[in-house]
Structures are given as structure tokens and as C-alpha cells.
Design a protein around this nucleic acid. Structure first.
Length: 354
DNA sequence: AAAGACTGCAACCGCAACCTT
DNA sequence: GAAGGTTGCGGTTGCAGTCTT
């Protein structure tokens, strides 16, 4: 913990009213680092009185802080049930898993990591994990530059665009692209949610850097649990893995009727996910390396009813029943919170085959 | 040893949702 | 329904500590 900053007049630009010796006195609110004395005051008050209205707590505890600051201090530092110290490998893995599904929904992720705060996880992600994955990606790009310069000439979109930064950072060792898409053998336009976006509402068309996951040839993907991961940069399949039941605790959270989330562990040890519609033995989407993808080809479903996709296209060339081709698509909020927090809030997934 | 660069993380800010009046 | 207050969240910032040169 850093030392508390010295009293700084610039940090006192807010004010609060306190009752001192029967007089209501306007006091400046402190900002910046908390002193041990302030911590003690807040801790004692919370242990004695429990949680309540935070602005009342700030006043009654005799703190020259706003309620918001007290709340933050309590949640992120003083709470007795907080776990201290570095993240364990298990926790790190779980964060990776959860982030691949939830994106930057730090509070949702924190809710599944007892003793950890959203702020802590966010910091951990932004410093440690992001950096690590970036290094992996750089190494991979170096390899690709050495081995396949020509194909990478097509990759500038996904690697230079700020919108794709997270995608490239989060790509595994073999993932030179930002988006991954899984379906049967026909490659059709699909959409990709950038789950790193706070709103999870951005949408990316497939680009030349897109990778694909195919069911392994001649196998029913669900019966045989085998998938093949391909990279269209060089046209060859580079990876495959066995599907396994997702065991990190989310299967219960995502027990949507008719839907199942399965993990796919590829041979780099990276866990990816697919969403399956069990009733028709059909995958409807994937969540791989931070990109949730809904498949929507000519025989597919009205997925917008599930995830709030708004058909915003004015593309008159769109003549293959695909609602989301090109860049004219707009995606509504995919309600992962609701999905995870309250299954009953999710409408039954009644896809219509057109 | 000193200075600058880098890193990790605590805390702030703005916004949106929710609640109360 | 409007207004004001509160809470919760995610993005961002600032700075102390550490590392590198």
C-alpha cells in the first residue's frame, strides 16, 4: 500500500456537512489516499453498524470523505473477507475463462472469485494478463513474419485498428487474427461481438485475418466432441482439440434451457467455448479467445430474438437471408448479466428455421 | 549513485440504473 | 412523471515503488 499523500488543498474541493458539537459545519472532503486513521474509523464503524447509506456512513463515522469514497475503500480494501496476495494459477485460469465469456464485466467476474474485487481483477487483467498475452502474440507475429510474410500483408486491419487491439492481445499463440467462427463446413458470414468493449455492442465483420473452427471432418461434433481449428491465413488447419464439458463452474450459471456451453481445450492449453443448441444438435455460437460469435447462415435462426440483434442493414445485396452481412450491422446488448444471474429472465430460445 | 523509464495498483471520474420523494 | 439522491460499474489517472541505464 502506498503511503497516504500529505494534506493537499487541491484534494479538498468537495464539501460535506458534519455535526460537530451540535453545530452543523461545512467541511471539505478529503480525496486521495486513505490514512490508517481513516481506515480505522471506517472499519470500526462498519463492524459496529454494518452497511447502510454510504453518505450517512461517511458522516457518522466522522470521515471527511464522500460516501462514494467510503464505499470504494470498504469494498476494495477494508472488507474482512478480502483475499490478499497474488492470484493463484487457478484464479488466473478462471479469470481467463470468465473474461472470454463475460468480457470486461469485472464485477460479474469478481462475483465468481470469492475474496477478490472487480478493481483487483481489472488491474490484474490490464497489467499482468494483457501483457502476457501481448507477448505471446508478439512472439507469434514474429514467427509469422518470418514464415509467412505475404499472408500477413493482409492483416493490417486487425492488428492496427485500435478496435481490434484487445483481440490481437488476447489471441493465443496460434491466433493471428481477431475473430473466430465456428460452424459446419460451409463458411458463411458471421458476426463477432467484441467482448472487450464495455457495452459489448460493437460488431466486427469477418476480415482476412479471421480464423475458423470447424467440426472435425466426418465427425458429428457433438457426438464425437472433436473440433478442428483452422487459420485461413495460410489455408491450413493448425490446431484441433477435444471438447470437454465445461467444468469451471459456469455450466450451472448458464443452464439455459436447450443451451449448453462446452469448453474446447485446444492443444495449446487454451480453453475456448461453444454454445450448443442441444435440441437440434447444432452450435449457435462460440466464445473463443474473447470473441463471442453467433453463427447465422442461410438456414439459421432468428438469433436477434435471443441477443437483441437489430437488423440495421440497408444492404440491398443482402439476398441470402443473412441479416448481418457486411458492416451495416448493429448489435444490441447481449445480456450476459441476465443470462448468468437469472436464467428465468432469459426468454426460451425458440429458434425458427426459415 | 542518480536519473529516467516502467509497473502495479489505489483511487477518482463520469455515467447509468435504481430508489425515494 | 419529474427531480434529486444513492449505488454500482468500468475506464482512466496519478503516483510510489522498482527497474534499467
Amino acid at each position: 500500500m502506498r503511503k497516504p499523500s500529505a494534506a493537499d488543498p487541491d484534494h479538498h474541493h468537495n464539501s460535506n456537512y458534519m455535526l460537530i458539537n451540535h453545530n452543523v459545519i461545512k467541511v471539505k472532503l478529503r480525496k486521495g489516499l486513505w490514512s490508517p486513521e481513516e481506515d480505522e474509523k471506517l472499519m470500526n464503524y462498519m463492524l459496529m453498524n454494518g452497511q447502510g447509506c454510504w453518505s450517512d456512513i461517511a458522516r457518522n463515522a466522522g470521515l471527511q470523505r464522500c460516501g462514494k469514497s467510503c464505499r470504494l475503500r470498504w469494498i476494495n480494501y477494508l472488507r474482512p473477507d478480502l483475499k490478499r496476495g497474488a492470484f493463484s494459477n487457478q484464479e488466473e485460469q478462471l479469470i481467463l475463462h470468465l473474461h472470454s465469456i463475460l468480457g470486461n464485466r469485472w464485477s460479474q467476474i469478481a462475483a465468481r472469485l470469492p475474496g477478490r474485487t472487480d478493481n483487483e481483477i481489472k488491474n490484474f487483467w490490464n497489467s499482468t494478463i494483457k501483457k502476457r498475452l501481448k507477448n505471446n502474440n508478439n512472439n507469434n507475429n514474429d514467427n509469422n513474419n518470418n514464415n509467412n510474410t505475404d499472408s500477413n500483408n493482409n492483416n493490417t486491419n486487425s492488428t492496427s485498428s485500435p478496435n481490434n487491439t484487445s483481440d490481437s492481445l488476447l489471441s493465443g499463440p496460434n491466433y493471428t487474427g481477431g475473430t473466430i467462427f465456428m460452424h459446419e463446413y460451409d463458411i458463411v458470414p458471421s458476426i463477432c461481438m467484441d467482448s472487450t468493449s464495455s457495452s459489448c455492442s460493437s460488431i466486427q465483420p469477418l476480415n482476412n485475418n479471421t480464423q475458423f473452427i470447424y467440426p472435425f471432418s466426418n465427425h458429428n461434433p457433438i457426438e464425437n466432441n472433436i473440433f478442428e481449428v483452422g487459420n485461413n491465413n495460410n489455408g491450413g488447419f493448425e490446431d484441433f482439440g477435444l471438447m470437454e464439458q465445461y467444468v469451471m463452474g459456469l455450466e450451472n450459471d448458464l443452464s439455459v434451457p436447450g443451451l449448453e456451453v462446452r469448453g474446447v481445450e485446444n492443444n495449446y492449453g487454451v480453453h475456448d467455448y461453444v454454445v450448443l443448441d442441444k435440441r437440434i444438435d447444432h452450435s449457435i455460437g462460440t466464445n473463443v479467445n474473447n470473441n463471442f460469435m453467433i453463427n447465422c447462415n442461410s438456414t439459421n435462426y432468428k438469433v436477434e430474438e435471443l441477443v437483441g440483434v437489430e437488423n440495421n442493414t440497408n444492404n440491398s445485396n443482402n439476398n441470402n437471408n443473412n441479416h448481418w452481412q457486411g458492416e451495416n450491422f448493429k448489435m444490441g446488448e447481449l445480456d450476459w448479466e441476465g443470462l448468468l444471474a437469472n436464467v428465468s429472465s432469459l426468454p426460451y430460445l425458440d429458434f425458427q428455421v426459415e
